[in-house]
Design a protein around this nucleic acid. Structure first.
Lengths: 162, 162
DNA sequence: TTGGTGATGATACACTGTAACACTCGGCCA
DNA sequence: TGGCCGAGTGTTACAGTGTATCATCACCAA
């Protein structure tokens, strides 16, 4: 397959997998994977675009059940804390984690200006250089966010077709 | 002095310099550096921590003059557009640009968890590796944000003193 | 049973950002 | 001179994002 490690494994099919991984992780760590948390994860994992907390709340609400945004935020706190979803700071929105990795280190988010999808990769080289740069200025990192906006591969091909 | 290129030149003294640079830039590009824009820049440049738009509005308001947040946002739009201040996405806040560079490319923001100050550097090496990584996955970048949270050099020394 | 803990529901609120409209001020042109 | 136009600003209202607080429920342990 393609030569880049991390690509869309969100998108409909990805939701099943994301939930399976979450269940496994919660069993291992003795955490509660409740219905709300599962539903929030499913909603986020069913999209290739980032969802706002209020979007999620609306998506989960139905005639019989009203899910308030605050509940969604709590579920998202849980999910982000355990690396199952990520927050996209530049969009105030959330995406499900496409990786199987445990710690959220070294992630790069690729946000397409055209189609809005978010892809996620890691780059040890970037990580490495960044670590070196930080060491040089005497800064001890605990977390970092790296978000790139631009045009994704699919959209570039599509616009080349014109 | 220290071996890292970019360090605090905000902080009180930096405000004068930031304004001087802004005036120069606006003259060059035939832009209006109005009182409001100058005051907003001064407020931001007088701090080493990021300021929220509402903080700025409050700081500029006095008995005789009420500055509404929306006015501050407009001034900030202008200032960010021309690279005079930067928005810190992870904090919904703004800092004045410590560099003399023109385009906002390759910036790294260092946010201290302890004292809250924000430092700014650039790293061609990180930039370079990131470009390579993006090329590999076929993503064409237009802008990026890179924000690192952790402990700054000053705070590390201070905590080592204990 | 009682008490504690973690998750959820519900309301209210604080903070962040934008839309829409009116007004002023300066420059420009008839 | 007078009128027009555009940029900047003031003002109000509102949309979107996130948190504080308290009540309730389920579950487990003493």
């Amino acid at each position: 397959m393609h030569d880049h490690a991390a690509t869309h494994d969100h998108g409909c099919g990805g939701a099943q997998e994301a939930i399976a991984r979450a269940e496994r992780l919660c069993r291992e760590r003795d955490l509660q994977f409740t219905r709300l948390r599962r539903d929030v994860l499913a909603a986020v994992a069913g999209q290739t675009r980032p969802m706002g907390a209020y979007d999620i709340a609306e998506a989960l609400s139905e005639p019989g059940r009203r899910v308030a945004a605050v509940s969604v935020y709590r579920a998202l706190d849980f999910l982000t804390e355990h690396g199952l979803v990520h927050r996209i700071a530049s969009r105030n929105a959330f995406v499900s984690c496409g990786h199987a990795h445990t710690d959220g280190a070294g992630l790069v988010f690729l946000i397409c200006r055209n189609c809005g999808t978010i892809d996620e990769t890691t780059s040890p080289e970037v990580e490495d250089q960044l670590g070196r740069t930080l060491a040089k200025v005497g800064f001890k990192p605990t977390s970092r966010i790296l978000e790139v906006e631009g045009e994704c591969g699919a959209c570039r091909l599509r616009s080349a077709d014109d």
